[in-house]
Amino acid sequence: MAKLRIQYENGEPERVIEFDPAKSPFHHDGKPGSILDVMLGHKLHLEHACGGNCACTTCHVIVKQGFNKLGEASEQEEDLLDKAPGLTPTSRLGCQAVITDPDAEIVIVVPRYTINQVSEAAEE
């Protein structure tokens, strides 16, 4: 079984999901077997404002362990990540980072903010 450990920069308690990658998709948004797919399929929320279509950065996660176990990032994902706040060398978009290795142990951090979050979306 693969293991996905999710830590939250805002201090929310850590979650751990154990799953069989061969059983993907678990949900309907993001690439099948992606971090987003796995989390939504196990009823853990991860922002995905564009519906998991690689058109925003709201599912930005930082991979702390197992980066090389994830499917390679496309140019489109890299283009979007360029605009993600708090970008790190191991940043990925949750909707695009696919876990296929059944023995993978992935640790991610969900950042507090995203570039697309407008603190006050409406004005008088």
Partner: peptide
């Protein structure tokens, strides 16, 4: 498959109507 967690899963930002 399993999920281990404590507390309520974090939710998204505020919704507009």
């Amino acid at each position: 498959m399993s999920v281990t967690a404590q507390g309520t899963a974090p939710r998204g930002r505020s919704t507009l109507t």
